[in-house]
Design a protein around this nucleic acid. Structure first.
Length: 541
RNA sequence: GCGGGUAUAGCUUAAUGGUAAAGCCCCAGCCUUCCAAGCUGGUUAUGCGAGUUCGAUUCUCGCUACCCGCUCCA
């Protein structure tokens, strides 16, 4: 095994006090531009929207596709140690039982009915004592009344009046008229009962808790149109991560593609988590796309490969236009990592709403394959022909959030420049500085004037020349400057303009040349039409 | 899940218990020889549902969505 280069020095995590990382004015402008220009829309907006779901419009779809294509090319096509796959989203229950997603990770939680504090049900210390239960409360003066069962455990130091006070405070939370003092409420249907070792009450407040609720974030469904509601075999889930489909197919891939360890299987695809609280625009969505590699290796190489992949991934972000200094590397300490991981780096980006994770590079050991071997009963060992060893490979997982990266690209690209025209007038130019390889439109094509048929005809020739090679946008409306600005705002890196020189009106040496205008510098150069394809392809790849 | 805020045109903002206004954008036409020019014309809005009222975009309630702070994030 060759030596891997040194990992970058992890930066200290930035805390909120150290950086004014919440720039909501900037974020609002970005959100507005995304809607106005067709990058991102709220899902089902026509019907009021769906919490935590977003749609990509024409430009957003191009941007996201470019990101995925670039990732796929760099990760799969340009490497000979990684192969791709594309797994099903619907996943049978046993797969996710084996992975631990179905049981182990959903802690039952209770809420304190009075204080709304959330407690883990399995960590509540059992209580014994007298429980006062009530059926409701009323307020004589206003005629207000409520029927709702509630109960309070009498804490050791409490007298019964303190118990009733707690109950009145609870019922007072339902009062519309906040001027009414809880003391004025009359409790209804008081009864007492002795309990032993009960976990139904908050040890700190005595208040009744909600029933323990499972917080499993997976979307469950049934497979088969006539699926019996009670048949556990018909239960399937929308996958909560793409990783498991890779582990489950690892053997088939290995048997069919002659890969030798170390090798990776890469996948881009949708995953679903029923997040309690989607937030920050598209950042935490319930439906999201992942770009994942599971890189299988020998146990002794796992840690080194984790550092190697961290560096590979950082180079990737740099290539798509996210500078290294805007990325933060978190070396997740012991105790905070997922239970299966013995090393995890988080790659975070400085979003306008804070520093947030883009990607995790996790060394998952051989946890997943071991579990699937155990649960499926099928051997998943790798046999090394050279050393004649049999072992379950370890795995390093660089797992990137595709939608998060799209959002990072948009946030990073957004810029407002003050430009001064010849008359000294200042104005703001909004520019998306997308790296050409991810920009939704690669080249704008304009005839200088639209009422000169020769210019229009030649411009359309150029469009027909370039359109098969890249995403172009032909525009003949409005003044040329406005057309440039429109393209600036959607991040088009190049524009060509067909003018009277192109027609040869100012000398035959300029015939069939156009001006090529670069977005960031606004500089123009004169280029022969026949040279455009190669020149542009070079720049946008 | 809790608390607070917001919801008027594609965007940004007005106004009103009684015909919803403007700028920008967009579209069409004219004009225009390289960085959001000008002229003419045009499309488009009170999130959804109840209630109060002769009449509600405005007041009240509910729902939904978004934003902020907690909480959560295997």
């Amino acid at each position: 095994m060759t030596a891997f280069f040194d990992p970058p020095t992890p930066k200290e995590p930035i805390t909120m006090s150290e950086t004014k990382s919440h720039d909501s004015a900037r974020m609002e402008k970005i959100v507005s531009l995304c809607k106005r220009r067709g990058f991102i829309f709220q899902a089902a907006e026509l019907y009021g929207g769906l919490n935590g779901c977003w749609d990509y419009g024409p430009l957003g779809a191009e941007l996201k596709r470019n990101l995925k294509d670039y990732w796929w090319r760099k990760t799969v096509q340009e490497r000979d140690d990684v192969v791709g796959m594309d797994g099903a989203i619907l996943t049978p229950k046993p797969v996710l039982v084996a992975s631990g997603h179905v049981g182990g990770f959903s802690d039952p939680m209770c809420d304190d009915l009075l204080t709304k504090e959330r407690l883990r049900a399995d960590q509540i210390e059992p209580q014994s004592g007298t429980v006062y239960s009530f059926t409701g409360a009323s307020h004589e003066e206003s005629g207000w009344s409520i029927d709702k069962p509630y109960a309070v455990l009498q804490l050791p130091e409490w007298d019964e009046n303190k118990v009733r006070k707690t109950a009145r405070e609870y019922y007072a939370t339902f009062l519309k008229d906040k001027q009414i003092s809880p003391k004025k409420l009359d409790l209804k249907g008081e009864a007492t009962e002795e309990v032993t070792d009960s976990t139904r009450y908050n040890p700190a407040t005595g208040s009744l808790l909600t029933e323990p609720r499972e917080f499993n974030l997976m979307f469950q469904t049934k497979v088969g149109a006539s699926a019996d509601e009670d048949d556990p075999k018909s239960i399937a889930y929308l996958r909560p991560e793409t990783a498991q489909t890779i582990f489950v197919q690892y053997k088939n891939v290995m048997d069919s593609s002659r890969v030798k360890i170390p090798f990776g299987i890469a996948q881009i695809g949708k995953s679903f988590r029923n997040e309690i609280n989607p937030r920050n625009y598209t950042f935490r969505s319930r439906e999201f796309e992942q770009m994942e590699i599971e890189y299988f290796c020998r146990a002794e190489d796992g840690l080194e490969l984790t550092d190697y992949w961290l560096e590979e991934r950082l180079k990737f972000y740099e290539a798509i236009g996210i500078p290294r200094e805007k990325l933060h590397i978190l070396d997740i300490p012991d105790g905070e990592r997922a239970h299966y991981s013995s090393k995890t780096y988080d790659i975070e980006y400085e979003f306008p709403f804070g520093v947030q994770e883009l990607e995790g590079v996790a060394y998952r050991t051989n946890y997943d394959l071991s579990k699937h071997q155990e649960h499926s009963g099928k051997p998943l060992e790798y046999f090394d022909e050279e050393t004649k060893e049999k072992f379950i490979p370890h795995v390093v997982e660089p797992s990137a959030g595709c939608d998060r990266t799209v959002l990072a690209l948009i946030c990073e690209a957004y810029d407002e420049e003050t430009v001064t025209d010849e008359k000294g007038k200042e104005e703001v130019r909004v520019v998306m500085h997308f790296a050409p390889c991810v920009a939704p439109i690669k080249c704008g094509i304009f005839p200088l004037l639209k009422n000169k048929p020769e210019l229009v005809a030649k411009a359309k020739e150029v469009r027909d020349l370039l359109a098969p090679l890249m995403t172009v946008f032909y525009d003949e409306t409005a003044a040329i400057g406005r057309r440039y600005r429109r393209q600036d705002e959607i991040g088009t890196p190049y524009c060509v303009t067909i003018d009277f020189d192109s027609l040869g009106e100012n000398g035959p040496e300029l015939a069939d040349t156009v001006t090529l205008r670069e977005r960031d510098s606004m500089k123009q150069e004169r280029v022969a039409i026949k040279d455009l394809p190669l020149l542009l392809l070079e720049k946008i790849r």
